[in-house]
Nucleic acid binder design. Structure first.
Lengths: 253, 253
DNA sequence: TGTACATCAGTGAACGCGCGTTCACTGATGTAC
DNA sequence: TGTACATCAGTGAACGCGCGTTCACTGATGTAC
């Protein structure tokens, strides 16, 4: 604790840098090999070290994986939040579309990390991280929820297309105090929108839309996200109207 | 070829039975362990054989995996088709809901197989099977498409909520002669519906909706699927109206 | 119907490999007087 | 400021394990005359 006013703890910085480098190298290798498998041997080789050295930083191969999963959750959440916040607060629909686009781009850029989060859970990796992850796990969803809550608080949400909420679902929502600002109808609509976004993203990220042209994939995604916005009651901003409104619905075009 | 009129080729039947048992055992193990990894050693042990014996049936561990993936595609396609066909032809929306429910139940029952199909593709497994799988791969989608094509041919499709189809997407659809019976708008709507269905199914199958009660999950799924039906222009059948219509929309309840 | 041969399922032993992990040790970096 | 000690990153050798795969062989099942 004497280090507070003392010199910068070089060792700790070096240590943190190495931890980061290990994780970055792991991701790099996953990216190259297209798998979520990581070998300590490979990481060490790429870093110009010997495998045992990694045990100074991670007690276990599992511990590294847990760290990678946690990072992935945070990265995705940050990407979504950043894209959302880059759009004017008044443009509710624009924010949703930007956030959804970030969700997609992140998944397309890093399918392995996306798979770490949303793929088949490996037994022993999801349960033990209960602590740090219950909060981290839902970060992407939280960012979407925050957006809905914000819009809801400001009275900017239209009623969603589905206006009835089954009791069982209503009860569940009520228990999540984190989302207490959102009307049950809108919360339900958000879940529908998220599922829709997640579906198109998963399909594309894992190559199931490869038979389409890239432009067609873009168009399909945008259509999916706009449809979700519409059914969820996210209003288009006046300023953004030109890009958001369906051309065919505009009289005189 | 003399066996046509001759006795039943017992050896071949035994052989086919063993192949089936190997695949079934592999699935069993994947189910138990919660992984998509399969070890020849384990399969052999469970079957009361020695590992080398399996090489009589599969040249490779990879060959077994390819077979399992192909089977999974077919199983899912069959399940969807069967559920769809169990509903009256006139009840377009009911057929969709049944098919979607089968998609979901299959995924919940066999998350590992679902992951084999729709998870992060393992390099070397998806590409080499180009032959038997290009057709098999899209079987679930084909079953959904067949449903749309059928309804479309009979003039039973309403216009979907999204009526404009971007040119890039329109061109893609035109190239798929398999789907030539469907209007581009409806084809696009089908893709949106599929993505929506796939999203809610993936999230639930991989445990991302575990914080909800089972009944709430059921309700959310049904809502998602109904919403998709509505936006895709799938009409409710008169007979099925009682179960399909939103209770709150029925006067006097 | 019976005998001689071919086919094929399955065994048991063994090879080879690569990976996770441990451990004693070295050399450099930081700390205390 | 300098010296003595503690801390810690990284090495190199080695262990253990388990798995995929090969191969020569056995015994049973089917086939041809």
């Amino acid at each position: 604790m004497t280090s507070v006013a003392g010199p910068i703890p070089r060792r700790e910085r070096a240590r943190a840098a190495t931890v980061d480098e290990i994780k970055a190298t792991a991701l790099e290798l996953m990216h190259e090999q297209g798998t979520t498998d990581v070998r300590f041997t490979d990481i060490a080789r790429v870093m110009g070290m010997t495998p045992p050295a990694l045990y100074r930083y991670f007690a276990d191969r599992d511990e590294l994986l847990v760290a990678l999963i946690t990072d992935a959750y945070n990265d995705l959440g940050d990407a979504v939040a950043a894209a959302r916040d880059a759009v004017d607060e008044e443009d509710i629909r624009g924010r949703w579309i930007a956030a959804a686009g970030a969700y997609r781009q992140w998944a397309l850029r890093e399918p392995q990390q996306f798979s770490l989060i949303f793929g088949l859970p490996v037994p022993g990796f999801v349960a033990p991280q209960e602590g740090p992850t219950t909060e981290a796990a839902s970060r992407a969803l939280s960012q979407l929820a925050a957006m809905f809550a914000d819009a809801s608080r400001r009275g900017r949400l239209d009623p969603p297309l589905v206006r009835t909420v089954p009791d069982s679902l209503r009860d569940c929502v009520a228990e999540e105090q984190k989302f207490s600002d959102i009307a049950p109808e809108s919360f339900q609509a958000m879940l529908h929108a998220w599922a829709s976004l997640h579906g198109i993203t998963s399909l594309e990220a894992y190559g199931h839309l490869d038979w389409m042209d890239p432009e067609a994939r873009d168009a399909l995604f945008l259509g999916q996200v706009r449809l979700a916005a519409q059914t969820a009651g996210l209003p288009a901003d006046r300023d953004a109207a030109a890009t958001e409104v369906d051309p065919a619905a505009v009289p005189g075009t």
